[in-house]
């Protein structure tokens, strides 16, 4: 259970899910609400993205039930490499794709102002007219966020939002997500970055084809849970009040 403070927006009960005849996730029970600020962690191939797609409604469960609270406005931020950044579009055009119900092709003044405000909030206000190929990785991530936020979602799902960005951008994205959560938006993201992201989130779900454990970082970032999740023994240290995961078998022992 992610939060006891507000009613769940989406609940998965005894859900199995996968693709065609293979099952990737087994017997998943999970709820997310507007209070959620949750990281889904696990190794590659563990079913993190599959879980996100279940929450999103892009994948139907093979077994079990998914309850949704009415028509929940959910926005999704995919991994950067899922699109062709050479596509002929500006940042503003990309952000406005989310407003696809409009029956005329041109952009209204109100829409333009709205896009400008969202881009400004994400510190890319000066890039509205820029072609998307000309953006850095961090700016591309922000543009995706802008496209998601312009739909004013109650729940924001992000797939590896800090993958391929530098440390400074990772901090910025994390702070931005914290701000959005403080404004009342539920946040669920996948990450493989235990030290850089997961340890900073208030709630984690460890996944390895099933939910291995969930709770606060102090509850789930333990050698036993990490071994069950990642299949390898890792040490956990405390440093300046933060949990630090160390992989003793790695040449670079800081995991993630």
């Amino acid at each position: 259970m992610v939060s006891a403070m507000s009613a769940p927006l989406i609940s998965l009960r005894q859900v199995d899910a996968g693709y065609r005849d293979s099952t990737v996730l087994h017997d998943v029970n999970l709820s997310v609400s507007q209070d959620s600020f949750t990281g889904i962690v696990g190794p590659s191939g563990a079913g993190k993205t599959t879980l996100l797609r279940l929450l999103l409604g892009a994948l139907k469960p093979q077994r079990g039930v998914i309850d949704r609270s009415g028509s929940v406005p959910v926005s999704y931020v995919p991994q950067l490499e899922t699109v062709d950044w050479n596509f002929p579009a500006t940042v503003e055009e990309c952000v406005l794709m989310s407003r696809s119900a409009r029956w005329v092709p041109w952009t209204s003044k109100a829409e333009r102002l709205e896009v400008a405000a969202v881009l400004e909030r994400l510190s890319i206000g000066d890039l509205a007219g820029r072609h998307i190929r000309e953006l850095s990785g961090g700016q591309q991530q922000r543009m995706f966020l802008a496209r998601a936020l312009i739909r004013q979602p109650k729940l924001l799902l992000l797939d590896e939002p800090t993958s391929g960005v530098d440390i400074s951008t990772r901090h910025d994205v994390l702070h931005l997500l914290a701000d959005l959560h403080a404004d009342g938006m539920g946040i669920v993201l996948t990450t493989h970055d235990l030290n850089g992201i997961a340890a900073h989130l208030p709630h984690l779900v460890c996944v390895n084809h099933r939910v291995v454990a969930e709770g606060s970082p102090e509850q789930v970032i333990t050698p036993d849970v990490l071994e069950e999740t990642f299949g390898a023994r890792m040490d956990v240290l405390q440093h300046l009040g933060l949990l630090v995961v160390v992989d003793p078998s790695s040449p670079n022992p800081l995991a993630g």
Partner: peptide
Amino acid sequence: VVFVRYRALMFTTFDPEVANVSGV
């Protein structure tokens, strides 16, 4: 058709999965 579905067609062309979960 392109006039009234301009953005939906562009979104589906650029990023079909996100377009799908964004109501297109």
